[in-house]
């Protein structure tokens, strides 16, 4: 399955939007946090997990999905949310804790819910997986179209919930795809130090489903492999487990000193930053010009700037609204 030029352009554009969004968040996050770095301060308080470098995992998968398909994501959700079509203004406002946010400010960056495009995420490692299986089950039981995709980190693949959910999806042959974003780190602990086998995709054989490993953080390769898995799921052939080799270009969260990273690792990863790599590919394959690129970059900045401005300009909710929405 090969992406069309339009699809490649879409992927590149959403990689740009995602990266520019993270860059904007990164900058604003530091407002009010210096000289003393205190997470509680500034327009964006709390933890902040940036997705820089992991954009290919978002676009290569979501290029195959429609709004009706369900995506569950993790504590590092922005890139996936953007590729899934989550309302960017609402997401930005949520991250700022504003009343116009997707959840009126109750959830924040680790709890992005946009039912309009069937996107959700959770800050608990491994808990993206069960809900995706359940959404897939629900589609089958209701004879409704659409599939489910669960994202998780390679660290989360050592969580019991992952194994239980995969087994159940395998037994029931559900239309669900498990996407492991292998950035080789779970906070400060390397994949090698925490995982008994080299490839999590090999674990698929225990659960009666195909397992695929995609090296190189390459959106095109991801598009191809995931396309086949999506076809399988849509045609009732059951689940697939896919592990994507990707890179975490930022710290685990903002404020992470990253002393645990081997010297030179980050520099090496920066050299194969998927965004310039994708740009070069477009130039090579589709004679993409600098002007074409400048236009797309400007468009992407426009989308991000608009969302950030919306978030900044929005009001905070009234404190007492905290009591609302526990039940409806």
């Amino acid at each position: 399955m090969i992406p069309s030029q339009e699809q490649e352009k879409w992927m590149y554009k959403h990689m740009l939007i995602s990266r520019f969004f993270e860059e904007a968040i990164e900058k604003i996050y530091m407002e009010g946090k210096s000289p003393a770095f205190n997470m509680a301060n500034g327009p964006i308080p709390g933890e902040m997990h940036l997705s820089n470098g992991q954009e290919p995992c978002a676009v290569g998968v979501c290029a195959h999905l429609n709004a009706e398909d369900v995506v569950t994501s993790t504590h590092r959700p922005h890139h996936v949310a953007i590729a899934k079509g989550v309302d960017l203004k609402g997401m930005a406002a949520e991250i700022f804790g504003k009343t116009t946010g997707l959840s009126g400010g109750r959830g924040g960056h680790m709890h992005i819910f946009d039912p309009a495009v069937n996107f959700s995420c959770s800050g608990i490692i491994g808990q993206s997986v069960g809900p995706a299986v359940g959404a897939a089950l629900s589609r089958v039981m209701q004879q409704k179209s659409g599939i489910a995709v669960a994202y998780l980190g390679e660290g989360a693949a050592n969580q019991g919930a992952f194994h239980e959910a995969l087994n159940m999806a395998g037994v029931w042959k559900l239309p669900v795809i498990f996407i492991i974003e292998d950035n080789s780190w779970g906070i400060s602990v390397s994949k090698r130090a925490s995982t008994a086998i080299e490839r999590n995709s090999d674990r698929a054989s225990s659960y009666g489903m195909p397992g695929e490993f995609i090296p190189g953080n390459d959106p095109i390769a991801i598009f191809k492999t995931v396309g086949l898995a999506v076809d399988r799921a849509r045609s009732g052939l059951g689940p697939t487990l896919i592990e994507i080799e990707t890179s975490r270009l930022a710290g685990h969260f903002m404020g992470d000193g990253e002393a645990y990273r081997p010297a030179g690792e980050k520099e090496a990863l920066m050299k194969v930053d998927p965004i310039p790599v994708m740009k070069e590919r477009l130039a090579e394959v589709y004679s993409w010009t600098d002007e074409d690129d400048a236009q797309l970059v400007a468009d992407a900045h426009g989308v991000v700037d608009e969302a950030i401005k919306f978030a900044r300009d929005s009001e905070y909710p009234a404190p007492e609204e905290a009591m609302e929405k526990v039940f409806v």
Binding site: A40, P45, G46, G97, K98, G101, G104, G105, R106, G107, G108, H109, H111, Y316, P317, A318, P319, E320, E321, A322, M323, V326
Partner: peptide, 16 residues
Amino acid sequence: YPDIPIPFTPPMEQWA
């Protein structure tokens, strides 16, 4: 703490 999940946004959390 009131009987609510702890909200993210500072005005709500600090109030609670």
